[in-house]
Design a protein around this nucleic acid. Structure first.
Length: 901
RNA sequence: GGGCAAUUAGCUCAGCUGGUUAGAGCGUACGAUUCACAUUCGUAAGGUCACUGGUUCAAUUCCAGUAUUGCCCACCA
């Protein structure tokens, strides 16, 4: 007998187990004892931002990744997760600045200066990084810490610079004066994807540029009209057609302004007046119209969010709101104002700083997605499309498989709308743009892109790169690019082993931010896809379906949950109910359920390990001596097959369900109970022990990917040299159809009927309020009981249903209540004292009613000639069998009813 | 405006390529303190599978439409 605690205590063992795993070195696939030709399975961990602590979303990702990688490791692959963290440029700087402002430093950038502020951010991010890495370990994630990376460390920075320079030399990165999304609060640009659209009320003003201007325009931003250089109308719009091409000179109170009427298909003739005032400097669309028509760009709003000199002396220095008011007043004074109406409007806000974005023309760095890549005959956009459609360069083996597939459309649609990517940011925390300038005069500037400044008086660009620029390189920058490319351009080392990575998981919110950029960068730089397959999951929501957020205060700290319920319970509750592409709800009751299950597994093991004569690992399938033995062994094979299929196709939740059902219901509730009876027999005891140990061993391996700690802890009892972590997953050879049918007939059907008999008796006992502890007698009236191997299972029925007598009889005994069980017969429970005839009659009558209905529907189906003709033979036979069964049941029920009269 | 998804028991969700008088967990009701486990065990109640059509011998499952919800994109200047 072995002493095992009554309840599983995760706190006492988790840290030690993780340490053992780490020390074993097996997280690094190079240390796995595998045949030389073993396959690789690699995952790049989406690097968490170093902006704080691990949140529930991270916990979910870790659970998913680690379940996948542990399964692959058990399958005998060289499995690796490359871990890392992300410096998260804007997000981190914004967070630190916010903290500093709270501490009383009103304007951190001004007051501290670049170096000091960077120091603060570095300090914060290092702290946060250490915390997060520790927390990832707490989640049990088996990543290869020897390959840990950080987007902002030396090798990754080096990769960033190299990629930038290559793109620059290929003409794919350019510096240009274009309109950008500008956050006044953050004093930085942001990309189109970093905008969050918010609906708000706005006023749509209608006015004329001047009294003799032939028509009016409508706008929600009158103050920007000071910078208008054109009016766009739809060329199909008859009202305005004749004006196209004409130029009018108007005076909006700050000097003469040329307004040209241009044609533009996208203008909606029905909106407003059907004429669009074109403000090239402060609208993306207008800027594009201006470029097409060669119109001048007048910047009337500056980086400080205030009106510029070009807006005129009456407006310079005013906020946009003040300028709007003033300009509308001016229009009214000058009789140009026509009217205003309330409308709903979507405005873009900065996802990090939260303020409304101004569109402003500036000189920034851009990635040109529509330019042909030298020597490749296609654009970056083409590459991004190919990777998910025809395959990279038309190679079918290089198609990224997206699960679920419907995200493909979303991705393609996004690419269609993709504009050049603005990659320069005016914040300080990030990879500084590797470009130097000489003679920093406006007109005569020499530009150099390289790792270091050339000799002489050169000055580096002050801007930094969009954080997604470095994230885009993640799958290969973490694998030693560019060092791991040899002279001939071939991959070597880790890059050769692990790239393209095998599998990637991410939340759908990262589809554009990250996935698209990884595809862009990787296909361009390495000429291959970043990952072969990507699994998209949803986000976690609270019990009411709301997103977890700080402002709602509904946040759940995964570390707290882990402390309270154990990491295994956390992981299992995260995985179950999660399906590809869909959001899942998360709440504490779910964790509780998972915790209970983990404890159940613990107790199953506790029972087995303390009741067997000798604890040894049984690897070979034991022989079966009883129906129950046959059944549990066959059932286990089925479960292994199912779980394997599910895990191979990344249906984690479904695999866990299958295992849970088997463990709880089949193994614990049925086999374990029967084994107690079998253990009483000296003939069966030894073999039953072997079966228990065998099933338990397999079960631990099956469960290990999901709940690694508890399984590993139980495993130690077997006294094996090797950790459970690196055991062998047993794949089951598929049975052929004949064998399957044999199994069904000889093993599953008899056992299933056995279960039904036991449940029927229990049901009758409960129904007639028989004392649960009392032993009772049962008679079975039935023929062909050999078919369900009754004799062999008789003792088990007696044991599980708490009987003192079980007989087969010809007729229903007096003083008994019964239930008709298809395929068996009447199960009659003897009662003490008289049977309540009225109640019994009612029971039978209601049963007859339901069977009648069933028979009717079956008969109807079978009478239908088309059904007999067109339905497959098996289906017809099945229905006929059902009908026969039900009719037999009916006969018995009617007999019973008769006997009651 | 364009697109995508979802709609099954009080709640959270399964139900794969059409044939089960629809399944689980939680919750609820009743019962049990038997030596693996009260983080337990047994039993039960509870659903016209959102709606309307169509295809089919057969539709929760396929198709179309409607409604509701959620999401993405474009954007109204």
């Amino acid at each position: 007998m072995k002493e095992i605690p009554k309840a599983y205590d995760p706190k006492a063992v988790e840290d030690g187990i993780y340490q053992n795993w780490e020390e074993s070195g097996y997280f690094n696939p190079d240390n796995l004892k595998l045949p030389k030709n073993a396959d690789y399975f690699s995952i790049s961990m989406p690097p968490p931002n170093v902006t704080g602590v691990l949140h529930l979303g991270h916990a979910l990702e870790n659970a998913i990744m680690d379940t996948a990688i542990r399964f692959q490791r058990l399958l005998g692959k060289r499995a690796v997760i490359i871990p890392g963290t992300d410096h998260a440029a804007v997000a981190t700087q914004a967070r630190v600045e916010k903290n500093l402002i709270k501490e009383g430093i009103k304007d951190p950038r001004q007051q501290l200066g670049r170096e000091k502020l960077l120091e603060k951010i570095r300090e914060y991010s290092e702290n946060s990084k250490a915390t997060i890495l520790k927390q990832i370990k707490k989640m049990g994630t088996s990543c290869d810490w020897s390959r840990l990376a950080y987007t902002f460390d030396e090798p990754r920075s080096n990769a960033v610079n190299k990629v930038f320079i290559k793109m620059y030399n290929d003409g794919l990165i350019y510096r240009g004066y274009r309109v950008v999304n500008w956050s006044v609060k953050g004093q930085s640009t942001c990309s189109d994807d970093e905008l969050v659209y918010v609906e708000r009320q706005a006023k749509l003003y209608t006015f004329k540029y001047s009294k003799d201007f032939p028509f009016a325009i409508a706008t929600t931003r009158p103050e920007t009209k000071l910078g208008d250089t054109a009016v766009a109308v739809n060329p199909k719009d008859k009202k305005y057609k004749k004006f196209i091409g004409q130029t009018f000179s108007v005076d909006l109170g700050h000097g003469q302004q040329e307004i040209k009427v241009v044609a533009e298909d996208s203008v909606d003739p029905k909106f407003g007046t059907g004429a669009l005032g074109v403000t090239p400097a402060h609208s993306m669309i207008d800027f594009e119209i201006a470029q097409k028509n060669n119109l001048p760009v007048i910047k009337v709003i500056g980086e400080d969010g205030k009106m510029t000199k070009e807006a005129g002396k009456d407006y310079v220095g005013l906020t946009v709101e003040a300028a709007r008011e003033k300009f509308v007043a001016w229009l009214k004074d000058n009789d140009l104002f026509i009217g205003e109406e309330d409308i709903k409007q979507n405005v873009g806000t900065s996802d990090r700083f939260g303020d409304v974005i101004e569109v402003i023309p500036m000189t920034q760095w851009w990635v040109n997605v529509n330019k042909e890549i030298p020597g490749r005959g296609k654009t970056l956009k083409d590459l991004m499309r190919e990777a998910v459609t025809t395959g990279h360069d038309g190679d079918e083996n290089q198609i990224i498989k997206i699960t679920p597939n419907h995200f493909l459309n979303l991705y393609l649609q996004w690419i269609d709308n993709l504009r050049d990517w603005c990659i320069s940011r005016q914040i300080w925390w990030g990879h500084r743009i590797p470009v130097w300038y000489k003679n920093k005069g406006k007109d005569n500037e020499e530009v150099f892109a390289g790792l270091e400044a050339p000799r002489g008086n050169w000055e580096q660009d002050p801007d930094t790169l969009d954080t997604w620029f470095s994230s885009g390189l993640w799958t290969f920058s973490t694998l030693g690019w560019p060092e791991n490319i040899d002279d001939k351009g071939n991959k070597t080392g880790d890059l050769k082993k692990f790239h393209p990575t095998t599998w990637m998981q991410m939340g759908y919110e990262l589809l554009f931010f990250w996935m698209a950029r990884m595809i862009l960068m990787t296909t361009y730089i390495l000429n291959e896809i970043p990952f072969k397959s990507v699994y998209i999951h949803g986000i976690l929501r609270d019990k009411d379906g709301k997103k977890f957020s700080k402002s709602l205060g509904n946040g759940i700290d995964p570390i707290e949950i882990s402390k309270q319920y154990g990491t295994d319970a956390l992981r299992l509750s995260l995985i179950s109910g999660m399906s590809a592409g869909n959001d899942a709800r998360f709440y504490e009751e779910k964790v509780e359920g998972a915790r209970n299950f983990v404890n159940k597994l613990w107790n199953i093991s506790r029972y087995i390990l303390s009741s067997v004569s000798e604890i040894t690992l049984i690897d070979e399938k034991p022989k079966a001596q009883t129906i129950a033995d046959e059944w549990i062994l066959a059932k286990l094979d089925n479960v292994i097959a199912e779980a394997t299929t599910d895990l191979k196709s990344f249906n984690f939740s479904s695999a866990a369900d299958t295992l849970r059902e088997f463990t709880r219901s089949d193994f614990a509730d049925w086999y374990l109970e029967i084994s107690k009876l079998q253990a009483q027999s000296s003939k069966l005891k030894e073999n039953t022990d072997r079966i228990l140990l065998y099933v338990l061993g397999k079960l631990l391996i099956l469960w290990h990917p999901f709940i690694p700690f508890v399984t590993e802890e139980i495993w130690t009892n077997f006294g094996c040299k090797e950790l459970l972590l690196v055991q062998k997953w047993s794949e089951v050879v598929d049975l052929d159809i004949e064998q399957k049918e044999e199994n069904d007939k000889n093993i599953f059907y008899p056992f299933w009927k056995f279960e039904e008999v036991v449940m029927t008796i229990r049901n009758l006992r409960a129904d007639f309020k028989v004392d649960p502890a009392k032993k009772v007698a049962v008679s079975i009236v039935g023929k062909n009981l050999a078919k369900i191997k009754f004799d062999e299972q008789k003792d088990s029925i007696i044991f599980l249903a708490r009987l003192d007598k079980l007989e087969v009889e010809k007729t229903k005994p007096k003083n008994s209540v019964s239930h008709v069980l298809e395929g068996v017969g009447e199960i009659c429970l003897h009662l003490e004292g008289l049977v309540d005839l009225k109640k019994e009659k009612e029971r039978i009558e209601s049963e007859i009613k339901s069977v009648e209905g069933y028979i009717k529907s079956l008969e109807q189906k079978l009478k239908n000639k088309d059904f007999a003709k067109k339905a497959p033979k098996e289906v017809v036979e099945k229905e006929e069998f059902k009908l026969k069964e039900q009719k037999e049941k009916m006969e018995k029920l009617e007999e019973q009813l008769k006997s009651l009269r």
